[in-house]
Structures are given as structure tokens and as C-alpha cells.
Design a protein around this nucleic acid. Structure first.
Lengths: 193, 193, 193, 193
DNA sequence: TCCTAATCGAGACGGTACGTCTTGTCTTGTT
DNA sequence: AACAAGACAAGACGTACCGTCTCGATTAGGA
């Protein structure tokens, strides 16, 4: 990675930060989490190793920041509220599954999971990044208010369950089965009462 | 790990196999998956590195065999069928949560997940080991037959969802929230129609 | 090292110069030449690295200036001329050997030599600082004039030889042998004809 | 450096040892002691760093072994005894000076001295390698027995003095002056009584 | 009974990456 | 313009493991 303008100094270099996060995201997709090394990032970013260690305490912190910056998912998980829970959640699901069904999508998911399992900071931000908290649980709450879902439905847990099923399933089975299973699950959980 | 009788010869040494798997399981609990090294296992088991590489192709294969042998979970996940799905699944859930709520239980879960994410072989066996396939899906099928669950309930996916919710939740939140959330989820999903 | 009054400005700061040379000399004695770093000096002197690089081109230049300023040898190598060459040179020798026989004296000598070997500027000033040129050769010249030494005696070379013997010997042997050997050598070289 | 036959195993690889010492000697002449790094040696020798650290505790130990193996001085310092001390020592001196007067000879001498000053092991072997102990002192002893030198002449110290004068002089002056000075010194010290 | 062949513990090998340290240059804001 | 502070690219440090290999000892089963 080339840095055209070398701006060194006692204040943090924005160019270096950008190059590092960029290289991290690129390598995360290319070689996966377990083969992503700090030295590799430094090499790819055209940056000294110490510049990475100065601002991030670990490989996980690097991934976590890429996650929050949306550098690993160039997608928009927010989906409009049409009044129909099932349809809305299925829309959201389509977006999630499009990531999974993309080339190397399964590998990407496994890498994300490996990162989340090894580093608490990554785990903390993973759910948020995938839009569970931001969208899914909120949409289900509305559905409860609208009477489309039982009043005692544990909306947070249902969100975890849907995404958890996808993740767990993608650890073992093939992608197709995972995707179909997720659709069946959502259809069952959000069927009209 | 000490091997009192060193028996070299043209057939596989059962003592070495035992010592290696034993050391692997011990180190998995002690230092976690990410700090578990082949050299460390060899040292702990009092075994040459080559003896490990001869019989297992990777760190993941070692973990996978420990999983299947029940060396990482000294528990019994099978629970008797009392005729009440909710009660039975809650019994299974208690067993699962007792692992999670044990000292270092969360760390153990994260390590397992890291191993599963990095190695397909581990991922393939993880569900089975936790009793999803063996018990949960089967019990839910019986519930469908008994009319306790809707006829179109996707039992495999419900199993994935329950375990997935636990796993996903344990990546970020604290243990207590995970456990309570899992109980709420199960109670909601299996509530009498 | 603390600088109570920080005076920055368009002229060279005498306080900074002093603090830097002081810190260099202190560290030279403390950690030796090979562990003396520019960063260490800056830290110890409470000075920015650039202030060092602005005025000295290298680590060696720093040492050389300490040498010329007499900051590494707080000693007086000049010895009065009593008319007896042997006695006078033995007096000078006592001063030199008192440095060598002091605690860490050998280490100091090795550090000096390391500095001189790595940096020409240091080497150039080492002889002068130890008083070979300033005193020894001159005193021997007088002895030639007085007839105490052969007319064709190469006085510069004899000075080099005496100091060289000490230095060379202190590289390998123990201090005691070096000191006694030096005394024997001087007694032999300057014995009455 | 290529190693044609890769002979790994639980016994020390002679090929690796050879390649390492060879690379060390080559780099010592090429880049000098202060720019000689372990990584550089490993790279040049086509060897893992650990293989160096396994067998030598430091950069100095590497140099010391090269010294004793005669890899830094491909010369023969022994000179026949013709019965004439002066002539014999001048022959020895010619050999020494030919090293010094060779291209980069001064740099080589400075590097040797830097190595000796920083590492005791190197210093211990330096004198022996240059033939002071092996040849010079012994030849002077014979001269004492033959009556060519005073009976009380401290032969060891005279040896140190001659070599020390060369070394010390080569730290500051130019090569020509050093060489001529050494010849004058020897002629003076060993002049017929 | 000997011989062949596979296994064992041990550990050296060429490598890669770790996280730390220092180099010499550059920049910022202060005096 | 000089200063203290310190970020920057570069690269060496010494350590830990990787997966492959060699070694000499050990032990089974076929000749």
C-alpha cells in the first residue's frame, strides 16, 4: 500500500491510520484471520510495525476497529419498516445471506467468528456490526407493539437466536443448507399468530 | 505427562496416544486454544513432536478427537424423555449452562468456538458433541409428533437457534445475561400452543 | 537529568549542551559504550533527540567531546619534571594505572577502546587525552636531550608502545598482571644506559 | 551461501556450522564488526537465526571462533629462527604489516579491536591469533638465552608493547606512519647491545 | 534366530512472526 | 531559530513455534 504524502510528527498520522486499517481489511478478506499477521499488515500498509503497536494493543483491536468502521462489511444492514415484520426481517436476512453466499462468504464468516472468539473486543462489536442490536431487536419490538408478535416475546433473544443459528450452522454445514435453514427458521418464528 | 514404560516398536503406542490426548485436553482448559501449541503438547505429554504429526494432521484434528472422545466435556448431555418437551429441554439447557457457568466456563466456550472457527473438522463435531443433533433435534421431533409443537416446526433449525443464541451471546455479554436469556428463549419457543 | 530552567530560542542552549555531555559521561561509566544510546542520553538529559543530532553527527562525536572536555577522566595526567625520566614516567604510569585499577576500571578502558575502534574521531583524541602526546613523548624528548635516553630513541613510538602495551594487555589478562607488566616494561625501557 | 546437502537432525550440522562461520568471516571483512548482525549472518549463510543462537551465545563468540579457526587471518605468522632476533622479528612484523597495509587493512584492524573491546572472549584470543604469544615472546626468550637481549628483558611485555603500539597507533594515525613507526620501534628495541 | 520395518523420544534444521528497541528524520507547538 | 516531545519508516534484537528431517534405541512379525 502506498502512502503518497508522508506526514510524520508528534501527532497521529491520519495517512498511516488509513493505510493500516485498509491493509488489515484487505488481508482479512484475502488470507483470513488466522493468517493475518501484524508484520503482514505493516508490509502491506508500507508502515513500521511500531506504528501499529503504538495505536492498537493487539491484532483483535485492529479487527475490532475495522468492524466499527464498516471496513469488513461494505453493506447497509438497515432495512425500511414496511409494517410487515416477516417481510422486513426477511429483507434483513437477504442482506446477511448475500454476504454468506458471496464467494468466500463462508470463509469470511469463519474468520470473523475466529476473531470474535479470540478477542473480547471483537466479540463485543460483532453483533452490533451485523445489525442485530441496531435493527433486528428494534424491529421485533415494534412487532410486539403492533401485536404481530406475542407480548412476552424476548426480542433480544430472538435476534440472538436467528443470527446465532446462522453462525452456528455455518461452522459445520454447507452454505446452501445454512441459508435455507435460516429462511425456514425466520418464517416459523415470525409466522402470524 | 509421564510415561513410565517407553515402548517403541512397529505398532502404534497406545500409551503415547493416551498421553497426547490427555495433555491436549489439559492444556486446552489451562491455556486455551490460541495458546495451545503442538510443541507444548509434546512437552506436556513427554512425547516426540513427530509422534503427534504422525497421527494427527493438525492442531484442529487433535482437538476434534478430544471432542469426540468427550475429553473436553466430561458431561452427559442425554436427558430422559418425560413427555414434557419444555421440561426436558430445560434439563438439557441446565447441563449446557452448568458448563458455561463453571469457573472459566466462558473462556472454555470461547476457546471451543475459536477452534471450531479455525478448523472445519472441529466445527463439524462441535454440534454433535454438545448434543444438538443427538438429543435436541430428536426430542423436538417427538414433540412435533405429540402435538406439543407445530407440525411445520423446523426442528433442526430450532436446535441450531437455541445453541447458536447461547454461543453468540457468550461472545459479548456477561455469562449471567446469556444464561437467563437462554432460559427465556427456550420458554418462549416451547410454550404450549 | 533535570533542567530547571528550560531556555529555548534561536541561540544554542548552554544548559542543553551541558546536560547532554553530562548525561553522556554518566551513562558511559554506568552502562558502557556499547549500551549507550542516543535515546538514552536524551532521556537522561531531559532533552529532545533532535537537539543532540543538531549538534553532534554521531555517538562517537559525543564521546570525543566528552573526552576533550575531560569528562571521562576527571584526572590530571601532567606530572612535574624532576630531572629523573624513570621516576617521572612511573609517576605518570601510576596515574594511568589508578584509573585501570579503580572499580570498573577495566570496563571503562574496554569501553573507551570500543569507542575509539568504532569512531575515528574518538581514536584521534584518545591518545591526547591519556597524555601520551601531551606529556609522555615530550618528557622522553627531554630525556634524550639530557642523555638519559639514546639519541636515536623513537620517542613517539615508545609512548605508543607503553600505552599500547597497557591497552592490549587489558583486553585479555587480568588487571593485576597488566599493571605489573606495565611497570616492568617502563623500568626496562628507561633503565640507565 | 548455499548448502547443497541439507543434513538436519539431532546432531549438530557440520554444513550449517561451516556456512555460518564462513558468512561471518565474509561479512566481517565486508561490512565491519559494527555492522555485522546476527540476522545478516543468518541471511548470508542461508540458515535460521535460531541455529546461530543455539550454538553461539553472542556475536562476539562467533567472531572469537572465526579468529581461532583462522578465518579472519588467512596468514601464517610463524617465522623461522635464523639466529638473528632483529631480522626474525622484522619478518614477523612484515607479515603483520602486510595485513594492515592491505586494502581495508586499517578498517579490518579497527573492526578486530572493536570486537575485542566489546567481547572478552574475542580479546582473549586476539593476542594468540596475532602470534604474540605463540611466536614473538618465545623468539625473544631465545634472544635472551643467546645474549642478544638483556637478561632481565620482560619478553612478554615487549611483545605486548610492539603489537600494542601498532594497534594503538592505527586507531589515530594513518597507516604509513603506523608501519614506519613500528619498524623504527622494533629496530630500536632490538638493537645490538 | 535373525532381519526388516515401523515406532518411539529427542531435538536440530530453515523459516516466519512475535513484541521491543533504537536509528535518524520529520513535525508540532512553545519560548 | 532553537527547543522538548514524540510520531514515523526501517530494521535488528532474542524467543517461540512451525512442520520436516535425522538419529539411535526399541520391538514386532516374517523368514
Amino acid at each position: 500500500m502506498w502512502m503518497n504524502e508522508h506526514r510524520a510528527g508528534p501527532v497521529r498520522s491520519a495517512a498511516a491510520r488509513e493505510a493500516i486499517l485498509d491493509a488489515t481489511a484487505r488481508l482479512f478478506h484475502t488470507v483470513g484471520y488466522e493468517n493475518l499477521t501484524i508484520e503482514g499488515v505493516a508490509r502491506e500498509a508500507g508502515v513500521g510495525k511500531q506504528t501499529i503497536y503504538r495505536w492498537w494493543r493487539s491484532r483483535g483491536a485492529l479487527i475490532a476497529e475495522c468492524l466499527t468502521d464498516g471496513r469488513l462489511f461494505p453493506l447497509e444492514f438497515d432495512v425500511p419498516d414496511t409494517g410487515d415484520v416477516l417481510a422486513d426481517v426477511e429483507s434483513w436476512l437477504d442482506v446477511i445471506l448475500s454476504v454468506l453466499e458471496a464467494p468466500n462468504g463462508t470463509a469470511l464468516m469463519r474468520s470473523l467468528l475466529a476473531a470474535a472468539a479470540e478477542d473480547r473486543a471483537v466479540g463485543d462489536h460483532l453483533g452490533a456490526s451485523l445489525g442485530v442490536n441496531r435493527f433486528l431487536a428494534e424491529r421485533l419490538s415494534v412487532a410486539v407493539r403492533d401485536g404481530q408478535l406475542a407480548a412476552d416475546a424476548p426480542v433480544d433473544q430472538l435476534g440472538d437466536a436467528i443470527l446465532g443459528a446462522i453462525i452456528f450452522s455455518s461452522l459445520g454445514s454447507d452454505t446452501a443448507a445454512t441459508a435455507q435453514g435460516a429462511r425456514d427458521l425466520v418464517r416459523y418464528l415470525l409466522r402470524p399468530a
